[in-house]
Amino acid sequence: MLVGPALLGLAFLVLPLAGLLVRAPWATLPARLAEPQVLEALRLSLLSATVATAGCLLLGVPLAWLLARVEFPGRRLVRALVTVPLVLPPVVGGVALLLVLGRRGLVGEWLAATFGVTLPFTTAGVIVAEAFVAMPFLVISVEGALRGADQRYEEAAATLGASRWTVFRRVTLPMIMPGVIAGAVLCWARALGEFGATITFAGNFPGTTRTMPLAVYLALETEPEAAIVLSLVLLAVSVVILASLRDRWVSTP
């Protein structure tokens, strides 16, 4: 009774990926990969996902620390808010970002007037959209690591004269590093695959905002073979991430 649906479920998950491999134009693959548009999209994707992850680390680790270590009223509400982008349809996230950071947005107008910075339809906009969608993955992972870490080590560091910052830098952070790395990798993978918020907030301009997922979608309508090649690249990246997570970080928290 259980094995049948289980096998069906497995086939459902694996078959599409197998189809991708079967239909891939292996003969023309090297040439297709070397096309300027492909390389451009790949470069843009890797760059924006990496910068977005760096930004998430810079803001998300302290946020996770706040949620895990500081008692304040409304902490549960804040934690719930942090996870909203996780369940929010990315397109909605893109619309929300436009309303706040767009040229006429609440913060965007001020940014444009004060610093002359406009985010929508720029590479910076891509990074902001990706970070918005991906940061919850990092925060949740790091917060979990912080909760799992033995706080008595932090107390021991305090009795040795370490300030809150020193405790965090020299004791907490090294001890939760596996969680931070796992969170960063998940965050990066999510940013790399981001589509909805990116196309809504940053548009689809080759060279500046057309990342791999956008290029895949576009290519599917004009030349499906190119879409398959681009998809294969993303699939390869995903598999590498999964393998690295399993072997090095997930199994030894």
């Binding site: 004269g161 020299r170 001890m175």
Partner: peptide, 20 residues
């Protein structure tokens, strides 16, 4: 004073040596 400003040394039950 907070713990980090007190002139104390503590040996904890499980020692709590920093593993890294």
């Amino acid at each position: 004073l907070p713990a980090d400003r007190r002139p104390i040394g503590v040996v904890f039950q499980d020692y709590l040596l920093f593993p890294h």
